[in-house]
Amino acid sequence: MMERISIVGIVAGVVITALLPPFLDGIARRVKARVQYRVGPPIMQTFYDLQKLFGLPSLRPTENKWFRVAPYLALASAFSAAFLLPYGKWVPVKFSGDIVVFLYVLAMVSVAIIIGAFSTQNAHSNIGGHREMMMLLSVEPILGIALGIFAFKAGTLSLSEIPLKVPASFSTVLAYLLLIYAAYAESGFVPFDVAEAETEIAGGVLVEYSGRLLGVLEYAMLAKRLVLLWLLSTFLTIPILRGIQLTGIAGGLVVLVVQLILVLVAYPIIAALEATNARYRIDQAVALNTRIFLLSLVVLAVAAVGW
């Protein structure tokens, strides 16, 4: 059991998953502000927001306990998923090395949010919940295809082995693109923020939450975005560093730094993408995802052939 646990990893995982998401969100807000010719809030603004929310009491729109528990379940799921990823060369708790397990644990964030959203008698939050579910429905097959390509080309679905073994080929590049697309859509960035859609359904899944519960829920969503991004950055870092001999603590630190840099570079790009897009309607988002799924079936066949 102990060989599956890394204290360094736990420390790194907790620090990064706990502190990085609000910070990144601060950066994103600044970037968006700049795109919009605004000054924007301080980088630490999301911390202040969360701090304020954590300090406020919540209203209780229903006696249903799941309403109150759901944000914590979501947060715990996001952190659990974060514990499966490598920070440098340290994986906090290897309860599974498998990417399928990872994705499912991460999907529990959505499941918890959906359960919370449906526990109240509120059509806005119900519609938000069912949109979140439909996003999950339509993104899942795309992830499935990416996994299929990895299975063909890398011969493994292990989180640590895919980036090590995956060969550079036509289909693996597409698999990476599919993974990036799915992660982006799954994170609920604009144009895929249909489940919250503030101006349409008044915040959707968030509408009934207030005060501390809202803070926890938003924190969970931010953490989930980071975890997905961290997965992508790991998948990019390791092939990049594959040629270099990295051993020992120093090597681990190099990997960690590269991972961090990639995340820090990616987030402003995402923010810029968010700032220059409008929101899809749920049927348009589903249609787009389905189309991508059907097209990428071809890629899967290509991978099976061996390209």
Binding site: K32, Q36, Y37, T199, E200, A275, N277, A278, R279
Partner: peptide, 13 residues
């Protein structure tokens, strides 16, 4: 209108 469809950049400009 931009804001309503989640396109805040258009709104701000």
């Amino acid at each position: 209108a931009c804001h309503l469809v989640g396109f805040d950049t258009g709104f701000m400009h």
